[in-house]
């Protein structure tokens, strides 16, 4: 349903002569209804840029190439008016900071009402009834009273539930969630994840979930894409990615997360700190080579192509090998 092909995103440099930053370097993604695709990777690897591009929210300074098809319709280079028929209505987005995505001077009910009314032409009372039912669907108790609350009167977890309700208000088929639980306490994180998974199962939306946390990804996703320096370096099912990673970067992620995945007790490790810095995207070598224990001369001379591996694929000359 959502089909991304060779998407590249470049942020303009400060002056015209500067090349700018290549944030995303030609990625493919496929997502179907009632599916969860997790996108994991180090900070700065281009996850948020990808999400913003799909939602049509990149700043004007960002240039995109490639194609994004939603139900076979291209949505990458639409004008503002066409975008507003996609945003909210076809694609809903949830951000990391639940407080920040709500206007502090309006009640949360008003902020959901306006989405409902914009997309569904309901009158005030019908819209409020819909808002209350949305709030109860995202697990908020006493929704009619909560609708009259202002964001500062709600906890972080409740605010994220409200933001999810607002993202669902126009009945989109795709939900983009950019680290939706990072800013929350551990127990609340688990509840919000349960809620998202439940929405996928019950309402059959497609969920693209960005997370720092391999354990989270392995627990909820149908497929996991591992991103490094603007490229997808491995794409696997959750079990195989954890037990038999192809790319050395995935292996490094897995080694830190494995005990928690096995324990399944809701404790999650963040991505491990790797030595060294992530290389710039768009080079002529494997971007991970400078930090890779398996790197050989070839890795430093050539970008490794994507090859089939296990139940998916990996972009590594030494996929599946381990350092001795």
């Amino acid at each position: 349903m959502l089909k991304v092909r060779d998407l590249a995103i470049r942020f303009a440099g400060r002056s015209a002569s500067e090349a700018g930053t290549l944030a995303v370097d030609g990625i493919d993604l496929d997502l179907d209804r009632a599916q969860v695709l997790a996108l994991i990777g180090e900070s700065g690897s281009g996850k948020s840029a990808t999400m913003l591009a799909l939602a049509g929210l990149l700043p004007k300074s960002a240039k995109t190439t490639g194609s994004v098809l939603l139900d076979d319709r291209s949505i990458l280079h639409l004008d503002e008016r066409e975008k507003s028929t996609v945003r909210g209505r076809r694609i809903g987005m949830i951000f990391q900071d639940p407080g920040g995505s709500l206007n502090p001077v309006l009640t949360v009910g008003d902020q959901i009402d306006e989405v409902v009314r914009t997309h569904r032409r309901l009158d005030r009372r019908a819209a409020r009834a819909e808002t209350v039912s949305l709030l109860s669907r995202v697990g908020i108790g006493d929704p009619a009273a909560r609708a009259r609350a202002y964001p500062h009167q709600l906890s972080g977890g409740l605010k994220q539930r409200v933001a999810i309700a607002a993202a669902l208000a126009a009945q989109p088929t795709v939900i983009l969630a950019d680290e939706p639980t990072t800013a929350l306490d551990a127990t609340v994180q688990a509840q919000i994840l349960d809620l998202l998974v439940n929405l996928v199962q019950v309402e059959h939306v497609a969920l693209l979930l960005v997370t720092h946390d391999l354990a989270v990804a392995a627990a909820v996703a149908d497929r996991i894409a591992v991103m490094y320096a603007g490229k997808i370096v491995e794409r696997r099912g959750p079990e195989q990615l954890v037990t038999d990673p192809g790319h050395p970067y995935s292996r490094a992620l897995g080694q830190a997360a494995l005990p928690f995945v096995a324990a399944g007790d809701g404790r999650h490790a963040a991505l491990p700190e790797l030595p060294g810095r992530m290389a710039e995207a768009g080079g002529t070598a494997c971007a991970f080579a400078p930090r890779c224990p398996l790197a050989i001369d070839r890795c430093r001379a050539q970008v490794p192509p994507v090859v089939p591996f296990g139940d998916g694929e990996a972009a590594c000359f030494r996929a599946g090998e381990t350092a001795q």
Partner: peptide, 22 residues
């Protein structure tokens, strides 16, 4: 430049409404 304006845009609200209310 606030996050809530970005979120309002992501929800597909009309520009005039975002300018006025958000």
């Amino acid at each position: 430049a606030s996050d809530w304006v970005r979120a309002a845009r992501a929800r597909g609200l009309p520009r005039l409404r975002i300018v006025r209310r958000h």
